[in-house]
């Protein structure tokens, strides 16, 4: 099976570059926009093949994002790729007002999200994008778990008529998908079934949650793992169904604890009178430290060990 999956062991951004190149082969409406980082966002192969469809806007993300709206208004399908922080914060108003308000089909596929550019420190960490983007109407927000699921995510949004924010990692994530399966638009994927608690995660946290679930199993604890790649629209039914089965939900994300997946799940629990206890794991409401990515993940308890610890805390809390 492994030989049939070219995305296995690739980071989400590497897989993005591969899939994007293949898409662009068959669709000359596709244009690529970046801001001085074509190599980092894996646009180089596209750039070499179709230089006329490649646009480097220099270190000026607001203008790039506004221009993407102009391209889309004229029938193009722009893929805008830069580091997450510079799309979701620096150019957020262009994204909101010029792209989301007119519901234009722009793909904002950002790399180096969360704390994945660890040593670069808080200026380059993106821990607010999920909370910001999910409060913008018309936006689809998706964060695939690994290389393989990035290919699945690209398929799931291919025909979507509105704007999409796709959150990708810099580093190679823990594998969540060995083989290429499928994301359905707005649906979560249940990757593991267990009766004791439900772990809900997106992005790199999914692979970490799966490893944590294996560890927990060694202690006789059975955890479900739900890949909530689509943070918006969120799969309410999956939360209700799985949350009510286990009565305990642990959300894990590489985002500020305020406004992200944990908050979204809390909304679903509260609004549906769901009998479930929630524990949110993420970056606490403080500015992050600089450091190696894996050490930062450990520091903020979003690595497999940290997730195990938080799962046990949740179980203690309810026992």
């Amino acid at each position: 099976m492994k030989s049939t999956n070219p995305f296995l062991g690739k980071s989400s951004r590497d897989a993005y570059g591969m899939v994007f190149y293949d898409l662009a082969k068959d669709n000359d409406r596709i244009v690529a926009l970046t801001a001085d980082v074509p190599g980092s966002v894996r646009f180089n192969k596209f750039r070499e093949s179709w230089p006329e469809r490649f646009f480097n806007f220099g270190i000026a993300e607001q203008n790039m994002m506004g221009a993407a709206a102009g391209f889309a208004r004229e029938g193009k399908l722009p893929f805008v790729s830069v580091y997450a922080i510079f799309a979701a914060l620096r150019a957020i108003e262009q994204l909101r007002t010029d792209i989301a308000y007119p519901n234009l089909p722009v793909r904002i596929c950002v790399t180096h999200s969360g704390i994945s550019l660890g040593p670069a420190g808080p200026s380059h960490h993106t821990l607010e994008d999920i909370s910001i983007l999910r409060s913008i109407p018309n936006m689809t927000v998706i964060a695939p778990a690994d290389g393989t699921s990035t290919a699945m995510a690209m398929s799931a949004i291919q025909e979507h008529p509105g704007p999409v924010y796709m959150r990708l990692n810099r580093a190679v994530e823990q594998t969540a998908y060995e083989t290429i399966s499928k994301y359905s638009y707005g649906k979560a994927n249940l990757l593991r079934k267990g009766a004791d608690l439900t772990i809900i995660a997106y992005g790199a946290s999914v692979g970490n949650a799966l490893l944590a679930a294996e560890k927990l199993q060694e202690d006789g604890i059975q955890a479900s793992v739900l890949d909530m790649a689509f943070i918006k629209p969120i799969d309410r039914n999956a939360i209700i169904e799985n949350g009510s089965k286990t009565g305990k939900i642990l959300t894990v994300e590489e985002q500020n604890i305020i406004g992200g997946l944990g908050s979204a799940v809390a909304e679903v629990i509260a609004e549906n009178n769901l009998n479930a206890i929630l524990r949110r794991v993420g970056i606490p409401d403080e500015f992050t430290l600089a450091g190696p990515y894996s050490e930062l993940q450990a520091y903020y308890s979003i690595d497999p060990k940290g997730i195990v610890r938080e799962a046990l805390n949740l179980l203690d809390q309810t026992s």
């Binding site: 244009v31 506004g66 221009a67 709206a69 208004r73 029938g75 193009k76």
Partner: peptide
């Protein structure tokens, strides 16, 4: 900026 994108298209 939007005008720039349109002109490029």
């Amino acid at each position: 900026s939007v005008a720039v994108g349109m002109a490029l298209a």
